[in-house]
Design a protein around this nucleic acid. Structure first.
Lengths: 239, 239
DNA sequence: GGTGTTCCTGACAGAAACTGGCAGTACCCC
DNA sequence: GGGGTACTGCCAGTTTCTGTCAGGAACACC
């Protein structure tokens, strides 16, 4: 292994292992001496990486400057931050956590000039009130949707009547006041939208509809668009 | 310059110059011999870069395998996509454009496995209706806020009365039904929130309040938080 | 203060890698 | 064929790297 190879390997290790990473862990991984690891860390620093090293603690990769930075324009960055802030206020704690985590990863890959902009972004998202709490585990629903797995649940409609449904979940849509599951409903043999707060007892059926989610979703969206156009026409006739 | 340094430099050059890049151009850039450049290209290939080299033509970087791809977990990716989709429906066309552009840039830096997930994300954002149209150029407002430049505008309050304001803009906040400018108002010598749809005739005053935006915004947020706590206490006393 | 853990740096001799120059090969295009 | 360009092996001299050893510093904990 050439030294250059090893330096690349060290960067990978510092990126992927949880901090702090000790020099002796790097010795075990590379097979070189402790003194060489210290030299290598120095070389990586010379290449622009910002690596924090505290005696008795270990190394932390602060800035990965050996990489070309992500090149976002300022307004793209503001859009990213605002978007992730929107997700944190949307009312889904697991998604909020993912959004914060994504934001931290972006931060690690931005040039220093833009880190400030990310931390003190001009745009912010706020909500008063919350949409009603989902009656099911949304993370499980997301996974099932992505896996194109048919699900079952109990659904309470606007009048309070409860029915058992089997659906092919296509998309989860976030609107101002409700979070909706767009799906193909086996009971109605048609597309239906379900409010997440009215769903209970989510389960997997064991059946799959892969690989049809994307075209089905496209059909459903087409349907909704056509209905919106119809409704606009009806309004024009009456107006 | 160490060899490792030079290898990094060569990668930067291959990324940034239009293909094809000749070996002699690389000689000119690095000051080493042609023979050494051939060796370096070989070394970069050994590190995983896919570099096409045609006699009489030059080098083309096909795959930049020396870079780790952006490493987002699946739910982080869904959060990013949902967030950017939220921004596209928020009612600000310039921001929507920036969001789409940011999405394209993310896509270019994801591993192939995740590109599919980004294109056919499970989560989506929708709005019925729109918040009222801003009465000013929001892009100019964003720039002024970032620049910490005092602005002036006419403001129509809820009763229809119009006043001229000079403010230090601190943040633009997006809520369900209104977009607000959080600012320090010179007329009232106090923090105020202004609805963007009630603002007219945005202008720069030439004055700046840099570098005070971040601490002022912190104070304003603290104020709002304290007021919310007060309001909750009042409700508890009455309830 | 003492102990343990860990980062840090300089010096040295020997080992390893690198370099430029040279020679020869191959491919594409005019 | 000639020009432009990528490619590879060889060699002597140069440069860099390595492990060992020694010494120092910082932090946490008892």
């Amino acid at each position: 292994m050439t030294r250059t190879h090893r330096l690349f390997q060290l960067m990978q290790t510092l990126r992927s292992l949880p901090a702090p990473v000790t020099a002796s862990a790097l010795v075990n991984e590379t097979g070189v001496s402790l003194r060489t690891i210290y030299r290598d860390i120095d070389a990586l620093r010379g290449l622009g990486a910002v690596i924090d090293g505290e005696a008795g603690f270990g190394y932390t990769l602060i800035e990965d400057a050996t990489l070309p930075p992500l090149a976002f324009a300022d307004d793209e960055l503001e859009a990213l931050v605002l978007g992730l802030r929107e997700v944190t206020v949307i009312g889904d704690p697991a998604l909020a956590e993912a959004a914060n985590s994504a934001l931290a990863k972006l931060k690690a890959r931005l040039p220093a000039r833009q880190t400030h902009r990310l931390q003190h972004a001009v745009l912010d998202a706020r909500r008063f009130g919350r949409p009603p709490e989902p009656g099911i585990d949304v993370r499980a629903l997301r996974a099932a949707t992505w896996d194109e797995a048919t699900i079952s649940f109990h659904y309470e409609d606007a009048k309070g009547a409860v029915s058992r449904r089997q659906v092919d979940p296509l998309s989860i849509v976030y609107m101002q006041n409700a979070h909706m599951l767009m799906a193909w409903c086996h009971l109605r043999s048609d597309f239906r939208a379900f409010r997440l707060d009215r769903m209970r007892d989510l389960g997997l059926t064991g059946a799959h509809f892969r690989p049809r989610r994307v075209p089905m979703l496209r059909d459903f969206m087409e349907r909704l668009r056509a209905q919106a156009v119809e409704r606009a026409k009806d309004r024009a006739l009456q107006g």
